[in-house]
């Protein structure tokens, strides 16, 4: 069981949260003009990182806010949580892909 630090409520138990996948996925600027491959890449393809992964969570049973979390996919350590729209904080961990 993870203890996830909600930026609004503080540390809470994992069962209060829902997962939202990889964070910082930007929608392509001109979506009508891009190729199917680029669109499919945006819609379906996600990183499969071994190391620090930036991901979205929602505090579904708490304050119902979305936010981002930096989690190590090997150790399950949560290194940081920060508000949606903010830049990820600088972390010491090196990501191994």
């Amino acid at each position: 069981m993870l203890v996830i630090p909600c930026p609004y409520c503080g540390p809470r138990c994992e069962i209060e949260f829902s997962y939202g996948g990889q964070a910082h996925i930007a929608r392509p600027e001109d979506s009508a003009a891009i190729s199917d491959e680029t669109w499919a890449d945006y819609v379906f393809l996600r990183d499969n990182t071994k190391g620090v992964f930036l991901e979205r969570w929602v505090h579904a049973h708490g304050c119902r806010q979305w936010f981002n979390v930096a989690r190590h996919t090997v150790t399950y350590e949560i290194l940081a949580s920060y508000e949606t729209g903010a830049k990820p904080p600088k972390l010491d961990f090196v990501t191994q892909v």
Partner: peptide, 10 residues
Amino acid sequence: CAQTRLAKAS
């Protein structure tokens, strides 16, 4: 006060 889960119920 806190919103949480009690016996899995919200």
